[in-house]
Every structure is written in C-alpha cells, then in structure tokens.
C-alpha cells in the first residue's frame, strides 16, 4: 500500500500531519520530504497522526528523529498521536518513547499544548 501524507494547520499554529499506510525503506522518503517541506515553510510545531499507519520500520523512525531535530533547531516540536500497540512497541524497543511526546488523540495533544503555553 502506498503512503498517504496530508497536513493542515490549526488556528493555534499546530500542523497536523495525517499519515496513512506503510512507512518503510521505500515510502519513508515521502514522509521525509513532507517534514522538510513544512519546516522550510516555517511550520515548526508538528503533530504526526500515526493512527492509520499499518507498518513502521526503523527507516520511518529515522525520518521522525530527523524531523524532530529540524524543528528543534527552530525551538519547535514534533509529537505523535498513536494508540496502536504494534507501532508503540517499536518506539519502546528503540527507547524513542523518551524522545517523542506520544498522545492518544489530536485533541489531547492540542489540550496539552494549550496547557503548556
């Protein structure tokens, strides 16, 4: 299955990236390009919605880490929405649960962001 990547920016300035499909060595460049494009457009607060991701490998993890580094260089943030155990397991194995903020829903991420302001 191909990877679908769409985004929108909320009134609060949070850019939500909806990702659907399999993120692997073949499709990850598409997500990488999207993240780079958003940062180049001045979008530094990103929330990647992983709820429709069916497969994620280390290439995808690498792209997310790369995106995090890019937004942090601009005092930005890159957080995730994910409740799928099969995907969360990969973040736990690699220790990346300590690196990414992971939320149960977009609404929860928005609420926490408002609370942190």
């Amino acid at each position: 299955m191909d990877l679908k990547v769409n985004d929108y920016t909320t009134d609060e300035g949070l850019t939500v990236i909806n990702v659907e499909g399999e993120i692997d060595v073949y499709t990850a460049p598409k997500l990488r390009e999207k993240l780079i494009d958003l940062v180049n457009k001045g979008k530094f607060h990103l929330l990647v919605d992983m709820e429709k991701v069916e497969f994620l490998d280390s290439t995808g993890l690498g792209v997310l880490v790369g995106g995090l580094k890019r937004v942090r260089a601009h005092d930005g943030s890159l957080e995730l929405v994910c409740t799928q155990e099969r995907i969360l397991k990969i973040f736990r194995i690699t220790g990346l649960t300590k690196v990414f903020g992971i939320h149960d829903s977009i609404a929860e991420a928005e609420e926490k962001r408002k609370g942190a302001k």
């Binding site: 290439t59 194995i93 690699t94």
Partner: peptide, 11 residues
C-alpha cells in the same frame, strides 16, 4: 545508532 539492528534484537 543502527535502529534496525536494535529492532531486530528486540523482536
């Protein structure tokens, strides 16, 4: 870090 090897070792 080679994330791939970490994932293999973990799975």
């Amino acid at each position: 870090a080679d994330l791939g090897l970490a994932v293999i070792a973990g799975l």
